[in-house]
């Protein structure tokens, strides 16, 4: 039988793609660069990551399935770890997939101070759909695509958490 346990190449997708090669269960190359990587736990959850002798301060924020969030030098990085098979599968499936209803979630926690559309209304890409206020800042939540408002999940004056579903836009056929 063919063994899958031996996956060696991973792709980390986030803002940028990073390729990681594993040898003997350890980091071997990152982006095809063989560098001296050293990861040392210093206290609680804090790590010192040495890349080519330069030290970075890191923390693990969360790990869920194959989604990892870390903080390095105060900046947050979200990665989805994909195995070779996973990457191939994704390529295959995205090729087959058609247009999808776009779901918009709250980018930050706050209060919906205004809903500017109604269900079924046509919206254009970039058109504001709601206004979210957080710490006295107003943020326009815009439609990511052209289409029809399929569903509004929140009402005016409702408090929302980060990532809470706000509305869906159906691009139609």
């Amino acid at each position: 039988m063919k063994l899958l346990h031996s996956t060696k190449n991973y792709t980390l997708t986030g803002e940028k793609k990073v390729n990681v090669q594993i040898r003997d269960g350890k980091l071997h190359k990152i982006n095809n660069r063989k560098a001296a990587f050293e990861i040392e736990l210093i206290e609680n959850d804090e790590y010192v990551i040495k890349v080519n002798e330069k030290s970075h301060l890191g923390q693990v924020v969360s790990l869920k399935q194959n989604e990892v969030t870390v903080m390095v030098n105060g900046n947050t990085y979200n990665f989805t770890v994909e195995t070779e098979l996973g990457s191939k599968r994704k390529e295959k499936l995205t090729k087959d997939a058609g247009k999808k209803v776009s779901k918009t979630t709250a980018p930050l926690p706050g209060e919906i101070v205004a809903v500017l559309v109604t269900e079924g209304q046509e919206v254009h890409k970039g058109e504001p759909v709601m206004i979210l206020e957080a710490m006295k800042m107003q943020n326009e939540i815009i439609s990511p695509i052209n289409g029809k408002i399929k569903a509004l999940h929140v009402k005016s004056e409702e408090t929302v958490m980060k990532d809470q579903a706000l509305f869906d836009v159906d691009p139609g056929k």
Partner: peptide, 21 residues
């Protein structure tokens, strides 16, 4: 909008990968 050190993303990937592994 934010400053990144040289190789910071490499360091981040290394830590993420290590955590995942």
């Amino acid at each position: 909008s934010f400053f990144q050190e040289d190789d910071e993303i490499i360091a981040a990937a290394a830590l993420a990968m290590e955590t995942y592994l």
